[in-house]
Amino acid sequence: MAPKNKENTSGNKKKRQISEEEDDEDYRRRRDRNNQAVKRSRVKSKLRTQQTLERVNQLKTENELLEEKIKMLTKELGFLKDLFLAHAGSSQHSVNFQDVDLNALLAEDTKSVEQMKDTPKS
């Protein structure tokens, strides 16, 4: 085996030092890019979660309003059925439906639905 030349050895150390410094800088750049990507990913995730929660709350409110509307329409349907049966059952009796004010009977239910729309949900 040939003896090592001192100049070659010292030259290799300099190359290794430069290479290690470049590796450190490259590593630092990669870490910084990765850290930025992680931050962006976390922000997007939080935004998606917040949007989902807002949508859930919106749908809950809409569902409550629709349930109230169902109750009101069910009540109206029952009333109209009773009215129809009363009319059909009293063919001998003269029932004057012009005197019945449906709007006044249903106004109370309509007001409660409108109030629910105006009240903010928590």
Rank of each mutant, 00 (worst) to 15 (best):
K75V: 06
L47P: 02
T119R: 04
D109F: 00
D26C: 02
V95K: 00
L83N: 15
K117S: 08
A37E: 13
T119H: 00
L65D: 12
K117V: 14
R30H: 11
K69Q: 15
E64M: 13
K71T: 13
L102Y: 12
M1Q: 07
A2K: 14
E67Y: 10
E114I: 03
T119A: 01
R28Y: 14
L59I: 11
P3H: 06
S45H: 06
A37F: 15
F79T: 11
P3A: 13
T52I: 10
S112E: 02
M1G: 08
N103G: 15
K4N: 11
R28D: 13
E114W: 01
N12S: 09
Q115L: 06
K81M: 09
K6A: 09
M72S: 11
F97D: 11
T119P: 00
T49Q: 12
T110L: 08
L65C: 08
V95F: 14
Q115F: 01
L53W: 12
Q36I: 09
T74K: 05
K69G: 04
N103M: 07
L83F: 10
E76C: 12
K15C: 06
H93C: 05
T119W: 00
L47Q: 15
E68R: 08
K46E: 04
S94F: 09
R48Q: 14
Q36C: 09
G11Q: 05
T110E: 10
K14D: 05
K60H: 09
F79K: 06
Q17L: 07
D101I: 06
E25W: 01
K75N: 03
G89V: 09
D82Q: 14
T9Y: 02
T49R: 11
A104I: 06
N34M: 10
T119C: 00
K4T: 07
G11F: 12
L53A: 14
N8T: 08
V100C: 09
Q115M: 04
S45D: 07
N96G: 03
E20I: 04
K111S: 01
A37C: 06
Y27V: 10
I70H: 07
G78T: 12
L47H: 11
A104Y: 07
N35P: 08
L105R: 02
R30W: 10
R29A: 10
K69M: 11
L73C: 03
D24Y: 09
A104L: 13
